[in-house]
Design a protein around this nucleic acid. Structure first.
Lengths: 241, 241
DNA sequence: ACGAATTTGTCCGTATGTATG
DNA sequence: ACATACATACGGACAAATTCG
């Protein structure tokens, strides 16, 4: 059932599949995972291997085992993040969580790279403000973003973000009442050491990476952002209404 | 450097990172990967472990080691797949590959599930045609899709697809000259055994999953598709022009 | 209240895979 | 190629907690 190639432990592969099953609502009827013996038979492995998988999920807070009773599902949430012409992080996720926080990890001014200069339509040598932020929803890390603004036009955006905890509200403070999403690139990679630390992931976990360009209403680029999401907590929806 | 947590072998984590570096063009200047000793130092592991990683990449055909010379990069391509109101698979990928094939793996008629009935706006108990297809570009698997059409309106779409190797051209044969992408959901998961077999992936690899609804010009749903892409060969771009 | 069945928790041992030097 | 240490996976046996007739 489970392929025995090398490099990825069988218990991890099984953990990934059970997590996906839970997220898909496969066990909603009972609110619990099937017994270890049943899972062992389903995946064609020893019960100990299933136990290793469930132990990992238990560490993640997804399930909780009760001796004699079974393994209960603690949570099965995957946030949906809509992407469209007027994409806003906080608004998009807003109805799905109560307590959304944006923490500014660091900010600095730097000279644009050639790649970034092209995207933001800046002359080479121009200066940009770089903001590193972590967003959490109900206490769980939801994204880790690095954002660049043209330094001249958006001086003070770091303080504005620190106060408002939101890019949208920070931009509003600086006189940008509205802005538009021009392009979004989406890819997926394995978690890197930074992701493991910042987003609280297991190595081998999946990170969804978006690279987004926002413009003002005149079409002038105002912001370029690279954001990393834990794939087991997030999905994207593109609506062409 | 590399975290020694459990479940994923270090050599596989390193292979994933080198593959990502190659895809990002990090080594384009020399056309080769740094020497094994340099990589070993960079990742803080023994040279044997780096050799295991490079051996895996060599198996995938991404690099080729030459004794006395170094480890050459054989290919570094990641297809970009644009998503918009008029999303077309073949057109979108068309300029990036010469030889695009769509193979019909199987087709059958089935009764809609409640979930699918809602998405396609069909009465419960209605019948749908299901097409399973594998798409390849230049001989490499690019996607594995399952597509559902209302059976009544699209009788014969399986034959049309088999002939034309394209959903767009198959729909044209059945009188649908144009159609629109209404919604696209994007998520990422670890490869399942089917993905390993169909897409030629390693277990532990990442699969990008899209769930897409297409409508005709009148807004009537004509097609719902779930497509799985190997994440190391594909990225998505959403343009809001 | 009791016992049987079910289910998770823990211990033993053994073979293979992974990583280092 | 060799040696060493640890992680992974299996198999079996039994204990401990819960459920149910």
């Amino acid at each position: 059932m489970i392929p025995r190639q090398k490099g990825v432990a069988v218990w991890r592969q099984i953990a990934d599949r059970i997590r996906a099953q839970i997220a898909a609502g496969a066990y909603d009827a009972t609110g619990r995972v099937p017994p270890e013996t049943a899972l062992a038979e389903e995946f064609g492995v020893n019960r100990h291997t299933v136990r290793a998988a469930l132990s990992a999920l238990s560490q993640e807070g997804i399930v909780r085992a009760v001796q004699g009773s079974g393994t209960l599902i603690e949570r099965r949430d995957r946030f949906d993040f809509p992407i469209g012409r007027r994409t806003r992080f906080t608004e998009g996720i807003g109805t799905q969580a109560r307590d959304i926080k944006g923490v500014l990890l660091s900010s600095c001014e730097e000279v644009v790279t050639t790649d970034l200069a092209e995207r933001l339509d800046l002359p080479s040598g121009a200066r940009v403000l770089r903001l590193d932020a972590l967003r959490t929803a109900d206490g769980r890390a939801l994204s880790r973003s690095t954002t660049w603004f043209p330094a001249e036009r958006f001086a003070g955006i770091d303080e504005a973000f620190r106060k408002t905890q939101s890019i949208t509200r920070a931009l509003a403070l600086l006189g940008v009442a509205d802005y538009l999403r021009a392009v979004t690139e989406i890819s997926a990679i394995h978690a890197e050491p930074d992701d493991v630390a910042d987003l609280g992931l297991a190595p081998g976990a999946i990170v969804l990476v978006t690279k987004a360009l926002n413009t003002d209403l005149a079409g002038l680029p105002i912001q370029y952002a690279i954001t990393r999401f834990p794939a087991d907590r997030v999905q994207f929806t593109i609506r062409n209404a």
